[in-house]
Each structure stands twice: as C-alpha cells, then as structure tokens.
C-alpha cells in the first residue's frame, strides 16, 4: 500500500502545468488527491509524473455570475458545500455534496477533481450533466469548453486529452422558481451510489411542468440523462400517475448488469423510486401544488 516511484512536479502557473503535461504522455494531475492517492497506494496506476497544481492561484477562485457558478480546479468540495452564495445560485451542489464521501474527504477533495476522475457512480458528474453544465479546459493550443454530455465518456474516462488540464467547472445558476433535488442510495452512507438521481424542473403558474432534467449516477458506465422520464414529466401536471410513469420509464436507463452489490433489477427499482421521490421533492420546491 505504498505509492510507486514517480517524478513530482509543482506547477506555479497553468502554462507550467500544460508544459509538464505536454512533455510526457503519462502524467497525472494532483489537486486534492482524494481519488489519485488511493489509486497510487494500491499501485493501480503508475504515472511517470505527478503535476501538483495546488500552487496555481487562479485555480482556487470561485466566480458567480448571473448565469453560472464557476468553480476553479483547486476549490475544495467542502468550500463549495458551505458557500452560501453558491447555495443560493445552485442549491443542488450543497444537497449533493452531503452524499459525497465524508466530511474530512470533502475538506481536501476538489469538485473538479471528482468530475475529472469521472467515476460512473460519483455524484457530482451527474449533477453537472443534469444541469447542462460544462468544464473549462486548457491545453497547448489554448482554452476550450466541453459540455458535460460531451465530457463524460466512460467510467474513469473523459474527453480530456493527456496534454490538457481542467481549470474550472461551470454549473448553471438555477432560475428562481426552479425545483431541484438530489438523492441516492449507497451501501453505507457516504459510499459511491448504487443509484443516485438528480432532478431539475420548473412548473408554470397552472401547475404544468415546463421543463425537466433528470440525471443519474451508478447505473451505467457514465452519468446518464433519463430522457424517457423527462419526456413524460414535461407537460404533465406532476400528478401521481405522471411521476409513477416517469419512474417506470427510468428503469430502462440502467445499463449496469447484475453485480455482487446490486442486481440490475434492484438498481432499476432504486432508480425508479428515487426518480419518484426526488421529483416530488423538486416539485414541492418549485412551488407546484402538492
């Protein structure tokens, strides 16, 4: 349980980090280290070089605009969790972060690190996906933005190139009146989800659902949008039947086959149940009539 040998490089600017990335195709970015260090301690990975980005000042910034919450790559999860302005702009982050590992891990783990690690059962990627967020990336050829749907490719695999660095994650601000909820079932509290569901929806003054975004983690090889459920909910009055139908529609999104922790059928049932319960919570927050 000790890391293998590697070269340690401390980047003081984004340019230095990119240069170090470009110089070797087997590097790893060291930010909070809460996913990387276990991988190294288990010797499941053997990067030639670790690039420590913690001393790059610009990566520790949080920016909140009218449309986006932009979270720099060195911002710790706990900072985001307790940040009241972020909570006002997008309350999903605080609700979700309570499910991300445990407090002490969130003290050091970064939001961007969790996204870039891209565990298919991790909570934050499903939130970025559901909110239609994006990540900002810098590489040798400059900066680019990658939409969440494009970014998450597979379990532990993203669209990031080996010579690039994610500098920030951008979560859209939820408009006033938007309903939202995140909930999950894990084997123990704080573990990766068996299934987790993120809901963002809005309701008009007549009680009709005008938009609905639902995303899930733990059910496939990447975070997955529940389009079937969304279609059923949009235009409905979010009545019991519609919500039940949305839950049932979500079942087919489960890709994960039976494993020793959960059968596919159990995952489907958890997913359907969480869709129903989280839609109910989100609808209440959106001010829909009960």
């Amino acid at each position: 349980m000790k890391p293998p040998q590697f070269e340690y490089q401390r980047a003081l600017t984004i340019e230095e980090a990119i240069a170090a990335r470009a110089a070797n195709d087997n590097t790893a970015i060291l930010a909070g280290g809460q996913s990387l260090l276990p991988t190294l301690n288990f010797r499941l990975g053997a990067p030639d070089s670790l690039i420590d980005i913690s001393r790059i000042p610009s990566l520790s910034q949080i920016e909140i605009t009218d449309s986006e919450v932009k979270i720099g790559a060195m911002v710790r999860q706990r900072q985001v969790e307790i940040h009241d302005e972020i909570n006002q702009a997008n309350p999903l982050l605080r609700e979700t972060l309570a499910h991300v590992a445990h407090l002490v891990i969130r003290n050091r783990g970064t939001v961007v690190g969790s996204l870039a690690h891209a565990d298919a059962a991790a909570e934050l990627p499903s939130v970025l996906l559901t909110c239609d967020g994006r990540v900002e990336v810098v590489g040798p050829n400059g900066a680019r933005s990658i939409a969440a749907d494009e970014f998450f490719r597979f379990h532990l695999t993203t669209a990031l190139k080996p010579d690039e660095l994610v500098t920030a994650a951008c979560f859209p601000v939820l408009a006033p009146g938007t309903g939202w909820a995140f909930g999950e079932i894990a084997r123990r509290r704080g573990d990766y989800a068996i299934a987790g569901v993120c809901v963002v929806l809005s309701v008009d003054s007549n009680g009709n659902c005008t938009s609905a975004s639902l995303g899930a983690c733990g059910i496939g090889s990447r975070p997955i949008r529940l389009h079937g459920a969304e279609k059923i909910l949009v235009g409905s009055r979010l009545d019991e039947d519609a919500i039940a139908a949305a839950g049932d529609a979500a079942r087919e999104a489960v890709e994960t086959p039976d494993d020793t922790q959960a059968s596919q059928a159990y995952r489907q049932q958890v997913l359907a149940t969480l869709v129903r319960r989280n839609v109910v919570r989100a609808a209440a927050r959106a001010g829909a009539p009960a």
């Binding site: 890391p3 340690y8 060291l30 280290g33 809460q34 260090l37 276990p38 301690n41 670790l50 710790r76 706990r78 407090l103 002490v104 891990i105 003290n107 050091r108």
Partner: peptide, 10 residues
Amino acid sequence: GWAGRSCLTL
C-alpha cells in the same frame, strides 16, 4: 486548518 487524511497526502 482543515482536517484531512495524511495517508492521502504526500
């Protein structure tokens, strides 16, 4: 100033 795992820190 923040509690953290010393086994996950170099």
